[in-house]
Amino acid sequence: MSRHVISRTAYFIVFGLLLVLLAATVLVAMIPLGDWSVAVALSIAALKAALIILYFMHVRHSPELVQVFSVAGFVWLALLFVFLFSDYLTRYDVTPLTG
């Protein structure tokens, strides 16, 4: 079987990047960014997830069919989020009762 083998060095580099991103997400949470802080936090989390999926989970070097499968779940999740929050986040008053 000819399979792509990612080197141990590459795994350690990805791991190092993940730790740097972890530090970044904690530090940036201490800076007052208002509504942007959740966007930044989610962007960093998405970057970490991408590193894990592409390298630790080998998707970057997998057959295209596997790549399509790996994206599928997130595509359906995106549908859920887009339609759910196009409602909840655009109401003129989203605060019911006390909050």
Partner: peptide, 19 residues
């Protein structure tokens, strides 16, 4: 790795809302 990814999102959403 998938379980790890779930935590990667849980951590900022639960612990880091406003620090």
């Amino acid at each position: 790795h998938f379980v790890d990814i779930v935590w990667v999102f849980l951590f900022p959403l639960l612990y880091l809302i406003d620090r």
